[in-house]
Computed example of a mutant assay.
Amino acid sequence: MTLKDKIKIKLADDYDLVEDIILDLGFYNLREYGSYWRFGYDEWSNSSALRIYKGSLSYKNYKYPDKNGDIISLVQYKKSCSFEKAMEYLAYKCGYSETEVEESIKVVKPFGSFFKKIKNIKNDFHVEPLDDNLIDKYRKSYFELLLLEGITIEAQDFFNVRYDLASGRIAIPIYKKEGLVGILGRINQRNFDEGVAKYLPIIPYPKSKVLFGEIENKKYIKNNRVYVVESEKSVIKAFSMGYRNVVALGGNSISEFQKLAIHSMYPKEIVVALDEGLELSHIKNQAESMKTLNILFKKAKIGYIDPLGLDRKACIFDMTEEQCKNKIKEVIWIGN
């Protein structure tokens, strides 16, 4: 049986892994519809442009029909790479060893393609910064809603939270080492219609290339534990509770860029703590995906927290301080 056949058999039986691959490739708005998944090109588009069917793993691109094929074709399309490179990517995602991949696709230099991949990630990590003075167009404010949610004035001030008069939303500036790269808008009311988005970009930015809290909390993470959460608000709330070793994905899947950024801070322990409402298998898969870069960095201990017992769509830092202290003792460690 060829490696291609092995990959397809594994993916046909592992829906969580297929979803992880779709999100890891940088697609967004993933939705499951019975016998297939739908998703969009970017975080601001709807989920009707692309489709992958379960079982067969056939892929349809409604905007570019000439790109239709299977999941390997999808990888080739998104990464603009050869069939061999697409196979290499999928093989690593499926957990096949370096030796198996090299023998199958005839990679001559040991680890050569792996290191080249990491180099490409580093090169692609850059985001063109905005003018830092742009943030001054948004009014400096303190929000009662955030205070009610346990976010202190000190935390709001530290993360430079502002008010966007045009949208009426709380404006959270997004920084990377390059500077200001975007602004996220959070609805400024506790109760709102289900169809209204809680978070919307005021100034869009590539979420998969940002790790919120990295700049602010980096020095507290080296040789320490880092908690990887979903939302930017959770990082700010954690600050209010005295936790400075927290970063946010801006979603529920860890991109290749974010994996590299987390490992580059040299944490001793990496704990994935995603929100309530996700399947535990997905959270475990995200934690296990962090192992792929342990070969390049000081090996970190990796684990995850079961969100069982949290309120609906809540994070561990939405709990009381005492509850949070107890919950973070429940880390499920995985083998490295």
Rank of each mutant, 00 (worst) to 15 (best):
F257L: 01
G277K: 12
N285H: 11
S264V: 10
K284W: 10
K259L: 15
Y243F: 10
V331E: 04
S289I: 06
K298Q: 15
I328K: 01
V235A: 05
F239M: 05
V247A: 02
K301M: 04
E322Q: 07
S281W: 09
P267Q: 01
E269S: 03
E321S: 11
S253N: 13
C315I: 01
G309W: 10
E269W: 06
G309P: 07
F257C: 01
I302R: 12
E288K: 05
K329I: 07
A261L: 15
K301Q: 09
D318W: 11
K301P: 06
C315W: 01
V272Q: 04
P267M: 03
F257A: 00
K329R: 14
K329L: 11
I305L: 12
M241H: 02
K268V: 09
L293R: 12
I328W: 07
I305Q: 10
I302A: 13
K329F: 07
K313Q: 00
C315S: 10
K327D: 09
K327S: 07
G250L: 03
I283Y: 07
K284D: 08
F239R: 08
K291E: 13
S264P: 02
K291Q: 13
R244V: 02
G303D: 11
L296V: 08
L249A: 00
L310M: 15
E256P: 10
K329H: 12
G251Y: 00
I254Y: 13
L278Y: 00
K284L: 12
K291V: 08
S289T: 00
M265V: 12
A300P: 01
F297T: 03
F317G: 04
D311Q: 05
E330L: 08
I295G: 13
K284H: 11
N252I: 15
K301W: 07
I332E: 02
K268S: 10
V247H: 05
L293P: 12
P267I: 03
G309D: 06
N326F: 05
I332G: 06
K329A: 12
C315T: 11
V246D: 01
Y243Q: 01
I295P: 15
I332Y: 01
Q323R: 09
G251V: 03
I334L: 09
Y243T: 05
Y243M: 02
I283Q: 00
E256G: 02
C315Q: 06
K268H: 08
D318F: 11
A238I: 00
W333M: 11
I236Q: 03
E330H: 01
N252D: 13
Q258Y: 02
G277E: 12
A287G: 06
F239A: 05
L249P: 11
A238Q: 04
M319T: 14
I262D: 14
A314Y: 04
K301L: 08
P307H: 14
I262M: 15
H263E: 02
S264N: 11
L308S: 14
C324A: 13
K268Q: 08
K298C: 13
E322D: 09
